[in-house]
Amino acid sequence: MERFFSALQAILNGVLTGSLYALIGMGMALIFGVMRIVNFAHGAFMMVGMYVTYLLFQGAGLNPYFGFIGSAMFLFLLGYLFYRGLLKPIRGRSDFMQILLTLGFGLILTDGIQLLFGADYHQINLPLLGKNLRLGSQISLNAPWLISFGIALMLGALLYFFVMHTMLGRAARAIAQNRYAAPLMGINVDRVQALSFGIGVAAAGVAGGLLLPVFYLYPTVGDQFTLKAFVMVVLGGMGSIQGAAMAGLVLGVVENLTSLYWGNEWALAVDFVIFLSVLSLRPSGIFGSQRV
């Protein structure tokens, strides 16, 4: 019974973590679907979102559960301008150049933040931090994680609705499914791609804001999330945002179970074993191949 509850606890924690992964992965999947670009700066954008939320908290006393909105707006703008100013001029060139550009921009963000704020670890102390929701005598859920989970769930659903049911979302999917035909519908491909990039990066910014209360903050915190987001995009079927969301939940649960049974240091390794297995055995992803 003891073992059952510890496993159940790990699974529930995994779902809570996974919901934030899912947001990050959905953003990356949207960008990949619409632009066929792997955004290697994704984690760095998320990290910037954490710093924005942190500064809003320290400077203006804004609670991170509201501050993430500021982070989303800032990152939307940053992503939009990044696309317009840097990515668009090299569209149509080799994939390699686009990889280098996002990778390089991620490094600039990381080192820029380090230059401005130093490499120190920061953490914020919300009174909420020690609060737990007890379910029975064995299971307890940490309050800030629960709140983050609730917000992530809401925004994930909103993003899904946006992509599936609005005209702009439909245009984004049209570009993903048939780039040649999209302009013939009167779609301004550049505009939709710039907006999609902004939205995809804003999703990472939201996740960063929501992670702040429960995570250490330092300039390279985003690196592991870039890799995880890439894993989610592959597991989810290369550009399917619902697939990436599911993959985020799976990753969260798998990581927590791995930590429980094998130790924390194995969590990332297991992510990559799954990643490589899926890539070699089922390259279209485990959640079908339907694209954005």
Binding site: M167, R170, A171, R173, A174, Q177, N178, Y180, A181, L184, M185, G186, I187, Q290, R291
Partner: peptide, 22 residues
């Protein structure tokens, strides 16, 4: 265009809706 160039993972309705994007 030649070879139709539809949006394959969208329903007929959604393809038509995109026709009225402008």
């Amino acid at each position: 265009p030649e070879a139709r160039q539809l949006f394959p993972y969208m329903s007929v309705e959604e393809n038509l809706a995109l026709g009225a994007y402008i």
